[in-house]
Design a protein around this nucleic acid. Structure first.
Length: 477
DNA sequence: ATGTAC
């Protein structure tokens, strides 16, 4: 990005000056000079367009890991007030609705799993269905699928996948309210019936990691993390169902925008007022997809436990937290001294509630919400904690990952999948994947520097670093 | 992200 196009607010915050007569909300870009300099110009264009949407409250924001996306940038955050014509946009949520990360802490050390690492990698790859269109062992009837759409991870636990204790540490305690199965198309439901408990493809993964460094001892204690400990992270979303809902509602929301005379800055920003038939329908379907994703990660956590029990007898895997990063949620936020109900779009951005927030489980009430920045398969991931400052700066939002630095197409031209896997193996990182093409697209070099993103996230006041995790085994879609 | 593309 050409830095002359943006204006520095402070060392970690930037804005885009409005040209004469330009009517839009302000924008904020978070990150250090180097991250911004390397960021795609498209992010600037896209977030400026978002700032023109009706009913936007505060600023349209791009997180430090932002990159080009459909309509909204990935790493985009925008809040809308339904009482001021605020809108809901499918492009502001993303196609993979409620894509997110489930993080499990174990009672194992890296040393303890070393002898069985290969067997563990093979076992996980065998038991965790991964890849495009891959089906799981569950085949749900239409009636059962409707129960998942409404019940989320709570449904999964009731079916024997995991424990009540897991639910305490899942956003929304495992089930978001407001899901309306009737607003989900039959095609979307049909696509999902065989896909529960599957990982999918692209940047989705199941990783066995170890705690490499602790930044904040007190928060790490609250999160149950310590140096050398084995942690399992599962990154995936709502599979075919979420994608189909996105596809269905792009059409419906575009028609609504036209019918209601909403001046769209760009076709990809199709949206409808939150208080409109189409807006309410999309919300009902999107909440249902959130429940599907929460249930999916709950089942995958259960499958991972099964593999660990077999290869590491006595292993205990407890849910640290499950956080989504493609959602729009109704939340109460203080704006100019007044509490308002806002619909916060977080696309490639995580919710990051600070200490004391009522939605946090007792265990984390003092430390703040666990925030997970998932890294590439060769570098590592961060666990952070939400801050009070983030509430005023970004409606309690933070980064979600390293963020792509290069398109999939560019990565394919530059790397060979087999070579990427072999090089990682030489560094002691075991990759198991259904797609060598995928491995090339996901080459660590195709991502931004996760350390830079995590540091910028902290310096911008969005969340503070707690622990750094390095990958040991990675099952890729 | 995606039964990867109208």
């Amino acid at each position: 990005m050409d830095l002359s196009r943006i204006e520095r607010v402070d060392d970690w915050t930037w804005t885009v000056p409005r040209s004469a007569g330009e009517s839009r909300a302000e924008v904020r870009l978070f990150g250090g000079r180097d991250l911004l300099a390397a960021m795609d110009d498209k992010v600037l264009e896209q977030i400026t367009n978002v700032a023109r949407l009706p009913g936007l409250v505060g600023c349209a924001m791009a997180m430090p890991d932002a990159h080009w996306g459909y309509g909204f940038p990935i790493g985009g955050v925008a809040a809308f007030d339904p009482e001021q014509g605020g809108i809901i946009s499918a492009g502001g949520v993303g196609f993979d609705i409620s894509c997110g990360i489930r993080c499990l802490r174990s009672n194992l050390t890296l040393e303890a799993i070393r002898p069985s690492a290969r067997a563990l990698a093979d076992g996980l790859f065998r038991d965790i269905p991964a890849g495009v269109g891959e089906q799981g062992r569950l085949k749900l009837s239409p009636q059962d699928l409707d129960r998942v759409l409404e019940g989320g991870a709570r449904w999964a636990v009731a079916e024997g996948y995991g424990t009540e204790d897991d639910l305490r540490y899942v956003e929304e305690e495992g089930r978001v309210a407001g899901a309306v199965p009737g607003y989900v198309s039959e095609l979307a439901k049909k696509r999902q019936r065989g896909e529960m408990g599957t990982l999918g493809s692209g940047n989705h993964y199941l990783e066995v990691q170890s705690v490499e460094r602790i930044f904040d001892e007190q928060a790490a204690r609250a999160f149950g993390l310590s140096q050398g400990q084995v942690v399992i992270s599962i990154h995936c979303g709502s599979r075919g169902l979420g994608h189909q809902i996105g596809t269905d509602y792009l059409v419906s929301l575009a028609k609504a925008a036209q019918r209601l005379g909403i001046d769209l800055p760009e076709r990809e920003l199709a949206c409808a007022p939150i208080h409109s038939a189409e807006g309410e329908q999309y919300l009902g379907a999107m909440y249902a997809a959130i429940n599907i994703a929460l249930a999916n990660r709950q089942i995958l956590a259960h499958l991972a436990r099964g593999v660990f029990e077999r290869f590491c007898p006595g292993a205990i895997l407890e849910t640290l937290y499950d956080v989504s990063h493609n959602t729009c949620k109704a939340e109460r936020h203080r704006v100019d001294g007044r509490e308002r109900l806002l619909y916060v779009h977080r696309k490639g951005a995580t919710r990051a509630f600070g200490p004391g927030h009522a939605a946090l489980p007792e265990r984390y009430r003092e430390a703040g919400q666990p925030v997970i920045i998932g890294g590439s398969m060769g570098t590592g991931s961060y666990v952070l904690a939400g801050t009070r400052e983030s509430e005023t700066r970004a409606f309690s939002s933070a980064s979600h990952g390293a963020g792509r630095a290069m398109s999939r197409h560019q990565a394919l031209k530059r790397w060979n999948g087999r070579q990427v896997v072999d090089e990682l193996a030489a560094r002691g990182i075991l990759i198991r994947t259904a797609s060598m093409r995928g491995a090339a697209e996901e080459a660590p070099g195709a991502y931004k520097d996760v350390h830079e993103v995590a540091e910028a996230t902290e310096r911008a006041g969005l969340a503070r670093r707690v622990a750094f995790l390095v990958p040991r085994i990675c099952v890729k879609g």
